[in-house]
């Protein structure tokens, strides 16, 4: 960590004629200096990518909030004993370790088809959980669009680990 933290004072120049002190395994790939026009085009592309990712997030967030809110509304609608501000029914009964709520996809499907608020809230939460994953997926496409293969591969790796984690969870 010590040597990496100290910049040695010479600026690193990317140029196609320079093979690089010890290029990381792929001598064929290099980033050359862009001309001002190319840089402007690149800047515009990156801007579009940022806006696309931002849009994915917003849509995911808004949809999940709407689903969660309607699920919560249904929970209170179906259970009138939840409603009073003063009452004997304690929230503890809903937050103890033995409280039943859907935690498999089969349970979740059943709960939603019965129109239970619980299931709909969980669905909204799952949509929220999917937003970062969707964001990474959009990232893969957008780095490809920028023709940035190393970063596209990096993002693809992250996506594979993320999706893999869901399958591992089911085992």
């Amino acid at each position: 960590m010590t040597d990496l933290n100290k910049p040695t004072g010479y600026s690193h120049v990317h140029s196609s004629s320079e093979p690089g002190p010890s290029g990381i395994g792929r001598p064929g790939y290099h980033r050359r200096e862009l001309s001002p026009e190319e840089a402007a085009v690149m800047e515009e592309k990156i801007r579009k990518v940022e806006l696309a990712i931002s849009m994915v997030l917003r849509i995911g967030v808004v949809v999940s909030v709407l689903v969660i809110a309607s699920g919560l509304g249904l929970m209170f609608f179906h259970h009138s004993d939840y409603l009073p501000i003063r009452g004997s029914f304690s929230y503890r009964e809903l937050t103890s370790q033995s409280t039943p709520f859907p935690h498999t996809f089969a349970d979740l499907g059943k709960s939603i088809s019965h129109g239970e608020g619980q299931g709909i809230v969980v669905l909204g939460v799952l949509i929220l959980i999917l937003t970062p994953i969707l964001r990474v997926a959009v990232g893969v496409l957008s780095f490809l669009y920028e023709e940035d293969i190393p970063m596209a591969l990096v993002t693809l790796f992250v996506l594979v680990v993320l999706i893999g984690s869901f399958f591992l969870a089911g085992v």
């Binding site: 809110a69 929230y91 937050t95 409280t99 809230v121 969980v122 929220l128």
Partner: peptide
Amino acid sequence: IDPIIAAPVA
């Protein structure tokens, strides 16, 4: 992930 906790938090 308990829905009654997750909903207000989210």
